[in-house]
């Protein structure tokens, strides 16, 4: 049908017969950057006609798994809410996710740190100290603690992801000019 759009498995839509829109302009037709280095993006093998995905299991693992691991490490090592474990793992995880996902995936990676970090701090604290949150007032105080201690981690994680995205944009532009 003329004008019909094709929905990719990831939900993005491309015009019929076009290369996936998520592919960088700097990429060659074989899915490699113009520089020839194999792209480490997690979009998977993308030969002509291959479906484009904004992010893959690797990106999800980095963006979710790393903060979870960091939060658990904090609890196990007694570093408290928003400790070094969560901070380092979140920064590395979101930076990595921004590095391996497609441009379309950036829409998801950039907003992800606040809810994920909050969920991880709340989840790990609740798992480790569930008995302390039975009282409503204590739970409210605990929630405030998660928010306050998690905020700097969120900022650093967003900053790390932004930095990686900026580096990728600059690199792409340079390779296009070159």
């Amino acid at each position: 049908m003329a004008g019909q759009r094709v929905r990719t498995p990831a939900g993005d839509t491309t015009a019929r017969g076009q290369a996936p829109a998520q592919r960088s302009a700097s990429e060659g037709a074989d899915g490699r950057p113009e520089g020839g280095r194999p792209r480490q993006c997690a979009e998977g093998p993308r030969g002509p006609g291959a479906p484009a995905q904004p992010f893959s299991g690797t990106a999800v693992l980095l963006a979710v798994g790393m903060p979870v691991a960091g939060g658990l490490a904090d609890e196990l090592l007694g570093l408290g809410v928003g400790g070094w474990g969560l901070l380092l793992c979140s920064v590395l995880g979101f930076a990595g996710a921004a590095g391996v996902c497609s441009r379309a995936g950036w829409w998801w990676v950039l907003p992800a740190p606040p809810p994920i970090v909050l969920a991880v701090t709340a989840g790990t604290e609740f798992l480790a100290h569930s008995d302390e949150f039975r009282d409503g007032k204590a739970a409210a105080a605990g929630a405030a603690k998660w928010a306050i201690d998690g905020f700097p981690v969120m900022l650093y994680a967003i900053g790390a992801a932004l930095l990686v995205i900026l580096l990728r944009v600059v690199r792409d532009r340079r390779s296009r000019r070159g």
């Binding site: 993005d12 839509t13 015009a15 302009a25 497609s102 995205i165």
Partner: peptide, 22 residues
């Protein structure tokens, strides 16, 4: 965000701007 082709690419290969899925 950055899923549109860059300006130079657009000049090289004008293509209809894809409309994202609602």
């Amino acid at each position: 965000m950055a899923e549109q082709p860059g300006p130079r690419a657009a000049r090289r290969k004008p293509a209809p701007k894809p409309r994202p899925n609602p």
